[in-house]
């Protein structure tokens, strides 16, 4: 049985599902410091799918790659405690301001440094952006096919992978030649738990950091410079108060309301 080289792309994200009142700065920008961070949920499911490949093909090697600040090292430790073999953080001020295009460029350059890779797994999208763009963009840059919205690993061997894809109106099973990139969706199985003994061992280990120079990039494709999209404006959602008419919860008042709507041809 052959062994595969697997990369998992993971992101540490602010927990947008638990946004408190202080999540926004007065100027409308996001107050990231006020938000707890989490392992992006779909990336965790991507890690699980990678681990399932390793279950089926023992000896396969899983490397987790994340891009972010110093504290993103937690993602690597967490991944390794769940069964990943190693990983590193891509961290550099020159990555700041990256949109999805610049992000996918930096990540694809990092993956290239690893030599031959058979499968790249990542979450479909991150909860802080919901764009779902980085996966397909990395696939294009690596010039490999992509399988998006994977929810179930059906089979894998040294040459191909069979996956069920969750689409809006059903499920599609595909076979994809390797190497390939797979994005994993929310309906995929949850990730297994960390091992206590691994956690203890990892607590003492240093997480590896790479900077921009380590991935040999064209510098003008990084960060703000390499990002074609610009945020022009951010608006907080403000409830525009309409003139709301209060209707009593009585048969008479409700009948009158219905009569009004009927007269206005809204109901008929």
């Amino acid at each position: 049985m052959s062994e595969l080289k697997i990369v998992v792309l993971a992101k540490q994200v602010p927990d947008t599902h638990n946004v408190g009142g202080d999540a926004m700065n007065p100027d409308g920008t996001v107050n990231r410091a006020a938000l707890p961070t989490v392992f992006n949920p779909e990336d965790l499911k991507a890690l699980e799918m990678a681990l399932q490949v390793k279950d089926r093909m023992p000896g396969s090697h899983i490397t987790v790659v994340t891009m972010g600040p110093q504290r993103a090292a937690q993602i690597i430790k967490d991944s390794c405690s769940r069964g990943a073999d190693d990983g590193f953080v891509l961290s550099d001020a020159r990555f700041a301001g990256s949109d999805t295009l610049a992000t996918s460029y930096a990540l694809s350059q990092a993956i290239r440094q690893l030599g031959k890779v058979d499968i790249v797994f990542c979450g479909r999208q991150a909860i802080d952006g919901d764009t779902a763009q980085v996966g397909p963009q990395v696939a294009e840059k690596l010039e490999i096919p992509q399988v998006t919205y994977a929810e179930e690993l059906c089979a894998v061997d040294g040459n191909s992978i069979v996956l069920n894809r969750r689409l809006a109106d059903g499920v599609e099973q595909v076979r994809c030649a390797l190497p390939a990139l797979v994005t994993v969706t929310a309906t995929a199985p949850d990730c297994r738990y960390p091992h206590a003994h691994r956690l203890l061992r990892l607590a003492k280990e240093e997480v590896r950091f790479l900077n921009a120079d380590d991935v040999n990039p064209e510098l003008e494709r990084l960060g703000l410079k390499g990002s074609p999209t610009k945020v022009k404006k951010i608006d907080n959602i403000v409830l525009s108060h309409k003139e709301s008419c209060q209707v009593d919860a009585t048969p008479e008042a409700l009948s009158q309301l219905m009569a009004t709507l009927s007269k206005e041809h809204i109901i008929s």
């Binding site: 999209t229 951010i234 959602i237």
Partner: peptide, 14 residues
Amino acid sequence: PAFGGNIIATIVSP
């Protein structure tokens, strides 16, 4: 909408 629907962003690609 961005950031879990809490803000509305206007994006341009100049």
